[in-house]
Design a protein around this nucleic acid. Sequence first.
DNA 1: ATTATCTATAGATCTATAGATAATGC
DNA 2: ATTATCTATAGATCTATAGATAATGC
Lengths: 218, 218
Amino acid sequence: MARPTKEEARDTRRLILDAALELFSEGGFAGTSMRRIARAVGVRESALYHHFPSKAAIFEALLQDLGPGQSERLMALDLDALLGEGPEPLLRFIARSLFESWATPREQKFVRMLMAEGPRLNDPGLMHSSIVAGRARLGRLFEELGRRGAIRPGDFELYAIEFMGPMLMMRLMFLVLAQGAPDLEALFARVDAHVHHFCESVKVGEAMTTKSVSRRRG
Amino acid sequence: MARPTKEEARDTRRLILDAALELFSEGGFAGTSMRRIARAVGVRESALYHHFPSKAAIFEALLQDLGPGQSERLMALDLDALLGEGPEPLLRFIARSLFESWATPREQKFVRMLMAEGPRLNDPGLMHSSIVAGRARLGRLFEELGRRGAIRPGDFELYAIEFMGPMLMMRLMFLVLAQGAPDLEALFARVDAHVHHFCESVKVGEAMTTKSVSRRRG
DNA sequence: ATTATCTATAGATCTATAGATAATGC
DNA sequence: ATTATCTATAGATCTATAGATAATGC
């Protein structure tokens, strides 16, 4: 039979993208053939070309669909309302929200795909906005928190690295390199511990010396 | 001509591995053909098969040659001699030494290759020992520093994440995702700032509260 | 007429091997 | 005899296209 009846019609475009994300995240772009995508969807290769002009177009459609990410929303928070108990509940909320979105199967596959293909993308901004998510944006958040007296003023870009670095490391350990379903219980416990440690390290009222920062190696 | 004269004999095996590392790091394993490796070396494909039984064997030889890494040496330091001025000079030395080895072109290419192929390797320990370098080993170092009173006793695995997370993030930002020669001057300044911040956060004598660490999300 | 599939296949490219050839080292 | 290359090619696989076929929506 050629075209399927309305009854058995499926959203083939969506199925192609789902299968491609799965396969690209496992085998990489070059390691995944159109043949294999077609087999996973259950159609012939030529049917893929009805929906996308090329294999690269499938990859680009995935970037379009999944690229922007959800971390933007987090920075548009009502700081006044959330800073009542100090910065820790706010930062814990942000950290957990990020991990919640990172822990979805779709996002896990997407970041695996990006890790494999990212350095080869000619859109270098993509990796920065995905892996090193919102570093500048976070710097601005810390600047704002500093202005409100919620954290000690200092090198806000350093704060962004101190906050996001361990987050990135835990993301890699628990959500990218680990196999099987992530242990979210253990993960959130570690995330909370990190947020607490970070907040203590930027607490108001402790005069952190900065003289050794500008030293060079001897 | 068939076999080259002694005069023009080259260490072809080494040239193959060099070319393969370069190409795998740029295009991934599946995205690099034996044809392209042969062309880069300047021999025919069949010459490659004289040195390696398959393309996979070339990849595995690279893992063998470059896998172990040099971070082991760092943990076998004479702590007594180095702790005279407190933990910061020691940790700064460790951090800079790690970045010095990570900044070599060979290591940069290797980690790009691993990032692309790592999740597909059936040796899962490799990624952990490379990307998440020596986390357990570092935990033990902090334990030892805590025992000697150089840092505040606490969750030493958390300390390892707090120390290595920002290191990993800076490695990604400056040495993996950045294009062109790395700005080592700026990098080391950031590394020093991180080490300082970390040391302040684990300084002896500050009672860091830990009650919120074990909270769960509400 | 348009849309979504199919069958069939062109043409490129890829991995790997067979067998020839010439330099080397005994 | 061994080693390191070459030429030539088998056979698999890959991307993409041409053209047939049947369901859909006007």
